[in-house]
């Protein structure tokens, strides 16, 4: 087995008296989709915010590509190649697709925006992800459907030679056809060699795209198991009770 790109060991995080994460371990591999599941309040969001550098855990190790690293801020996470696509997407409706993809990291030539380079790169990235649903990449994000917006947000996250992409509930607000589109995109990210962490409530989605399933229960990692070795019913047991006798987790 190849070395995992990102490994978390014994992460602890509390807010005042509330201990949110207890000795959480997580292994994320290149070219694989790791699904992070858990009930509301299980600590999913806190865990990804620790990876993204928004929260700093009290203790625990981050091992990135075999090296011990410290993620002490969003910039540190970004410079390692870790990108997060939040549920609310954080897109500017009044800007077009290209502008949104390069927001805050515009390509410039002599202090002037280099629109050609940005447009070509955006086009190339979308083509690389086989995105064919957007008519023009110069249209305003306001005119896009929910699935297309999600696509833009995901494409933005892979624009920066990123290695790990964290997707927070990417299909939560989407219809059937659009969910399918986004899930295909998630698979393609992994095929392109990225490590994907997918947070989802929807076990159908999880079983469709994930390679490995990590279940959080009340701030503890109940188990991280290969998808082939577990059934949906057992995942539900893990989410609700933190254990599943039949899956061998006690």
């Amino acid at each position: 087995m190849s070395q995992p790109i990102l490994q978390l060991k014994a992460i602890n995080k509390s807010f005042g008296p509330v201990h949110v994460l207890h000795n959480v371990d997580l292994t994320v591999e290149k070219g694989k989709v790791t699904a992070l599941v858990g009930d509301n309040g299980a600590g999913k969001s806190t865990l990804i915010k620790c990876i993204a550098g928004i929260y700093t855990p009290e203790s625990g190790e981050f091992i990135f590509e075999g090296n011990n690293v410290e993620i002490d801020g969003p910039r540190a996470a970004t410079s390692l190649g870790i990108e997060v696509v939040y549920q609310d997407l954080a897109l500017c409706d009044n800007l077009d697709i290209v502008h949104n993809m390069f927001l805050g990291r515009e390509k410039k030539r002599n202090k002037v925006l280099n629109e050609h380079e940005m447009e070509s790169l955006a086009r190339k990235t979308l083509d690389g992800l086989s995105v064919r649903t957007v008519k023009s990449i110069r249209q305003k994000v306001a005119s896009l459907s929910g699935g297309q917006r999600q696509t833009v947000a995901i494409a933005r996250s892979v624009l920066w030679n990123s290695k790990v992409v964290i997707l927070d509930e990417p299909t939560a607000a989407l219809g059937v056809a659009q969910t399918e589109q986004v899930l295909n995109l998630v698979k393609r990210l992994a095929e392109n060699g990225l490590a994907v962490i997918l947070i989802s409530h929807n076990l159908n989605d999880v079983f469709e795209v994930a390679d490995s399933i990590a279940a959080l229960h009340l701030g503890r990692m109940a188990a991280q198991i290969d998808k082939s070795k577990i059934a949906p019913q057992q995942v539900i047991e893990l989410i609700t009770t933190g254990k599943s006798e039949s899956a061998g987790v006690k």
Partner: peptide
């Protein structure tokens, strides 16, 4: 460009650095 971004979605602009 950042002026438009702040006017469109200040939170998105902040997260974009």
């Amino acid at each position: 460009r950042h002026i438009y971004a702040v006017g469109g979605n200040a939170e998105a602009a902040r997260r974009a650095g």
